[in-house]
Nucleic acid binder design. Structure first.
Lengths: 196, 196
DNA sequence: CTATACATGTAACAAGTTACATGATTAA
DNA sequence: TTAATCATGTAACTTGTTACATGTATAG
């Protein structure tokens, strides 16, 4: 159900888009949220048209088909947000890899962490450049999307910081038997207690 | 390919485990990294046995089968880390939802963010309790896993902070036309520049 | 005129989820 | 004795990936 809502959101945001445009969008802004290939997008668009949640409002060269969300489509988006239970699960191969770092030597782990660090920093820099290039005040969707972008910015900032921290721990001998262990995390987290 | 490496990592960590044990582990510590159901785990275990990456080393009541990783299995884990390109993509429905918050009213968005916040804080608290209950010095795998746990701790801390930030922005009128927009993210991120 | 980007689609396969199915042990 | 938990598995379905297939417009 997530893919269709991602498409619906993009098409409801204002600008009419083609399947090709949407695929581009998935390759950049949605790549780290809900990746999708064009082979998945085109059939889903056909289903959305069939259900009346989007309509084709234009065409272009090379058989280009341009779609927009219908009022029913926007309503479906709202219903999704308001009436379905969020799935808070996250899937990340990079995170999974960190579970297995102990099978590497200190040097190998350092190399792995350095590569991760570079990749996260590269992505963060790209994000910041993208943020700076956009006028976030133009439309309601843009204004709201600013929240999502901040989420991404903080996420990648945190990844870079984690990689640096992990690298320092490994350098200090974490992976060597008898090496020092870091202090518990709660010593550097304050003000995030549950309001329950 | 990720599921098998997650299983391999757990079985290589030291303690022999059954499919049931592994499913429990996926329901807790790996739930926010690489979720998996028992229906996916049992067939994968059978394949891993067939390929000689794990062996059944014991049995228990109710047809319980206990497995351990073979040296070939540990080597396969290392090869995965050292010789395959990481997939840095992240999939998160909660993150995707934040893209569509603009379709909600200020009040509706606040309710949604409050629910997210509570869920993240709850999970963070659970994580911290779990961290405190464990002796991280016992084995190489435990020592290394400390890095992954820190990753999770920071991730959820950041989510709580983001939800608070987003809520404050919405409260200030971000979703209302003409309302104030937050300052660009880079103003509160320092020391994470790419070392490229 | 030729390579690249644009543009849409389908087919075969792999991965993941939900539901079904069965039965043993244990604690109250 | 009965409910909960332990324990393993399969089947049907949905979702997602990779590869195949085709053709048009544009820029150099």
């Amino acid at each position: 159900m997530s893919l269709r809502h991602a498409l619906l959101d993009l098409l409801a945001a204002g600008e009419p888009m083609s399947g090709y445009d949407l695929a581009q969008e998935f390759a950049v802004s949605l790549a780290n949220v809900w990746p999708a290939q064009h082979s998945q997008i085109y059939p889903e668009l056909a289903r959305l048209v069939e259900e009346g949640l989007i309509v084709q409002t234009g065409e272009g060269p090379r058989g280009r088909k341009v779609y927009e969300a219908t009022p029913a489509g926007v309503e479906a988006l709202r219903t999704w947000l308001l009436e379905t239970e969020p799935d808070y699960g996250v899937r990340s191969e990079a995170f999974l890899r960190s579970f297995a770092l102990w099978t590497l030597t200190t040097e190998e782990a350092q190399a792995h962490l350095a590569r991760d660090r570079a990749e996260y920093a590269r992505h963060l820099q790209y994000l910041d450049t993208a943020i700076a290039a956009v006028d976030w005040s133009t439309s309601p969707s843009m204004r709201g999307r600013r929240l999502a972008i901040e989420f991404g910015h903080r996420f990648f900032t945190q990844l870079v910081e984690w990689a640096d921290w992990a690298s320092a721990q490994v350098e200090a001998g974490l992976l060597e038997p008898g090496g020092p262990l870091p202090a518990p995390p709660w010593e550097h987290s304050e003000g995030t207690d549950a309001k329950v």
